[in-house]
Design a protein around this nucleic acid. Structure first.
Lengths: 183, 183
DNA sequence: GCTTGACATTCTAAATTAGAAGGTACACCA
DNA sequence: TGGTGTACCTTCTAATTTAGAATGTCAAGC
């Protein structure tokens, strides 16, 4: 009857990865970085801290340290239960910090040529991110859920790129003619 | 030659609002909540803390407390300079936490009918958010930059909704008969 | 043996959050 | 008139989270 203590989403994501087999903190951090980092930001120190907490609560089991202090963690039955309880929860609201949008929001204080530079950079970065998602979808695509999440990444990046282009083309925010340059 | 101490984006956003005229902490928090909260998350306590810091540095000037301890802050010339220095910076990377995407990423552990419920809820919430952005664009739309940012909110919500719908319709994630549930 | 650099974890000060606590003014009703 | 509820507004605090420095291990090349 007693439900186990609730875990946070970061801890849950670690349990999610561990349900495929034992991993070390380093590997978990890398796995996060390569897959969910775009929509679930986690720092390395937090990975290690959550692992310690999970171990204290008996949701993971720390193995003996291997070669370079590598300490493999494996999920326990209690951990699987905690994860199962977590995943059916109400997801909750997103928390977002997009400095680019803040900059544009206050864009009337920004010299137009600087804005153009920023948009150019963001367009390049966005195109690169889009490419990475497309590559990832090819290597990670076995699981239809993972594929769908990557698809969202692609859709999102495309939306962002289209918006950046329309912004760069918007005459109402470019008081000077498009050809003006200062080098 | 010495450029003033760098300010963070949250402090900068307060200066941005204050450049339209004096406001109290409460009003600033409300202004943030009504405009940029969707892409720049700020807590109320941080608004007040940043105001104190900005006042210490001379970027804002605290007025006398009015009726209910209301303390209006106004931006100083140094504050305008700090803001001008801030806005030309490199925007930097977004920080995002979307619990819904985490849930879907690990969706193979989720009972299909629960997933359907969650998607239904998110579709409703998304439609509401979209509507709010559209309303906001009508009341805030004087400034083309603000309008563009709200347009991004609309584009983003539409992308999210379309993705949610395709997800709800995806047959490969709805194993109705003998399933993949392995643990 | 020595140096270099990638690998792996731990530690710490500082920043940030949630939300409780504390206080003020106004409206309404008895 | 006084009392009470409620919205308004700011401050405070413990707990969480972050960035990144510090520490240590191993393998490879010289």
């Amino acid at each position: 009857m007693s439900s186990p203590a609730e875990i946070n989403a970061t801890a849950a994501s670690l349990l999610g990865f561990l349900s495929n087999g034992p991993m070390t903190g380093w590997e978990l951090d890398a796995a996060v970085e390569e897959s969910i980092a775009n929509f679930w930001n986690v720092t390395r120190s937090q990975v290690y801290r959550e692992l310690r907490t999970l171990a204290e609560r008996g949701y993971v089991q720390a193995g003996d340290a291997g070669p370079r202090d590598r300490r493999p963690y494996s999920i326990t039955p209690a951990g699987r239960e905690a994860f199962a309880n977590w995943i059916v929860r109400d997801p909750g609201s997103p928390i977002v910090r997009m400095p680019l949008l803040l900059t544009v929001f206050f864009g009337r204080h920004l010299p137009p040529e600087r804005l153009a530079e920023i948009l150019e950079q963001e367009l390049q970065g966005g195109a690169q991110a889009l490419h990475q998602f497309e590559v990832m979808q090819q290597s990670f695509g076995d699981d239809p859920f993972v594929r769908q999440v990557l698809q969202f990444g692609i859709d999102y990046q495309k939306t962002l790129l289209a918006w950046l282009q329309s912004l760069a083309a918007d005459p109402s925010i470019k008081p000077q003619s498009a050809g003006d340059r200062r080098d």
